[in-house]
């Protein structure tokens, strides 16, 4: 699956997170890439909501690097912004976390690319202007993405 979505406000980005969160399964890793303020944490709030994690619990983990949540599925919210190398990520055991049975959301995923599984779901956030964002979603084909696509259909440009 490879699609582009247009988010014109933060609520759209949260909606995409919610739609994806609904179809996530244990062990799924979602790799998020995008500049500061592009909407990565907002997206994670949507995923958290879909997993039944009380709203307000999903906050930026830049400082703590990993926060863990208990929802319908256990969720690790990871932000590797502060790490300077893949070696540092190994030192804190991130390789074990992303290869476990938890759902993992990884902000600044490009910094630890080699540690992430090949079949992870990749989302890139492009800042267009003001609140406008383009989200590129890439994932290995799987029937469950049909449900996801039907929920975000209205955000596909030209649809």
């Amino acid at each position: 699956m490879e699609i582009e979505l247009l988010s014109s406000r933060e609520e759209d980005t949260i909606h995409v997170g919610r739609a994806l969160g609904n179809i996530l399964e244990p062990g799924d890793v979602v790799a998020l890439t995008g500049d500061l303020g592009a909407g990565k944490t907002a997206f994670c709030k949507g995923v958290g909501e879909a997993l039944g994690i009380p709203s307000g619990r999903i906050v930026s983990p830049s400082f703590t690097i990993v926060t863990e949540h208990r929802g319908r599925l256990p969720l690790s919210h990871i932000d590797v912004y502060r790490l300077s190398s893949e070696e540092e990520a190994l030192d804190i055991g991130l390789d074990e976390i992303v290869s476990g049975k938890r759902v993992c959301l990884v902000e600044w995923a490009e910094k630890i690319r080699i540690l992430l599984p090949n079949d992870c779901i990749r989302i890139t956030f492009h800042i267009l202007s003001g609140e406008m964002r383009r989200l590129s979603v890439e994932a290995r084909d799987d029937p469950r993405f049909g449900t996801f696509l039907s929920r975000v259909k209205h955000l596909i440009p030209g649809d």
């Binding site: 907002a42 307000g56 830049s62 502060r82």
Partner: peptide, 23 residues
């Protein structure tokens, strides 16, 4: 408490935008 970024994080990220390094 904060719903998104921590106060110190706001400063640290602003410093990054302003070319003052992180944190």
């Amino acid at each position: 408490g904060t719903l998104d970024d921590a106060g110190g994080e706001a400063f640290d990220k602003a410093a990054k935008f302003l070319g003052l390094g992180y944190p």
